[in-house]
């Protein structure tokens, strides 16, 4: 059997993290290709229900990335995102689901190398967790 290749959904904020990912690309930094980026205008645009959907549809990991605290393009969107993420984490924990498959990282537009590091780390972590059992489940 082929080695398990995790599929990770990345919600990247337009102003910092998506630009950081772009910088990683234009700088020709090599990194795993397991992350499927979805551009959102702000990390606070990510309703936990979007993450829950990705998880139930079989995403092995979900990354939310936004501007560093204090640097949000909309002033404080990332602080709200952090609260929503806290809710999501606790809900997932309360049900005994794998909270380790979720990650919230701050990546600025100038941090191409950090983007690569986050993607590498998270891909390895999710690879160790193995496939998301929700991806095989027949009841969504």
């Amino acid at each position: 059997m082929d080695e398990f290749e995790p599929r990770i959904i990345g919600f990247l904020c337009n102003w910092c993290s998506y630009a950081g990912a772009d910088l990683a690309g234009t700088s020709r930094l090599e990194m795993p290709s397991n992350l499927v980026p979805i551009k959102v205008m702000c990390s606070s645009r990510v309703d936990p229900e979007m993450v829950a959907d990705a998880f139930l549809r079989g995403a092995d990991g979900v990354l939310i990335a936004g501007c560093h605290p204090g640097d949000c393009h909309y002033d404080k969107g990332n602080y709200y995102a952090r609260r929503r993420f806290a809710v999501l984490k606790k809900v997932v924990e309360s049900l005994g689901l794998e909270a380790d498959r979720l990650r919230l990282s701050w990546i600025s537009a100038s941090e191409g190398a950090r983007f690569r590091k986050v993607v590498e780390e998270f891909t390895e972590k999710v690879r160790k967790l193995g496939p998301n059992p929700a991806g095989k489940e027949t009841l969504l």
Binding site: D47, P48, E49, A52, D53, F55, L56, G58, R84, V87, L88, V91, L95, G135, K136, E137, T138, L139, L140
Partner: peptide, 21 residues
């Protein structure tokens, strides 16, 4: 992809979303 899927789908999706909200 899964081999089978419950129809109509969406009950756990709904509860997970409602829990978060």
């Amino acid at each position: 992809r899964r081999g089978a899927v419950r129809v109509p789908s969406g009950s756990i999706q709904f509860q997970l979303g409602r829990l978060n909200h």
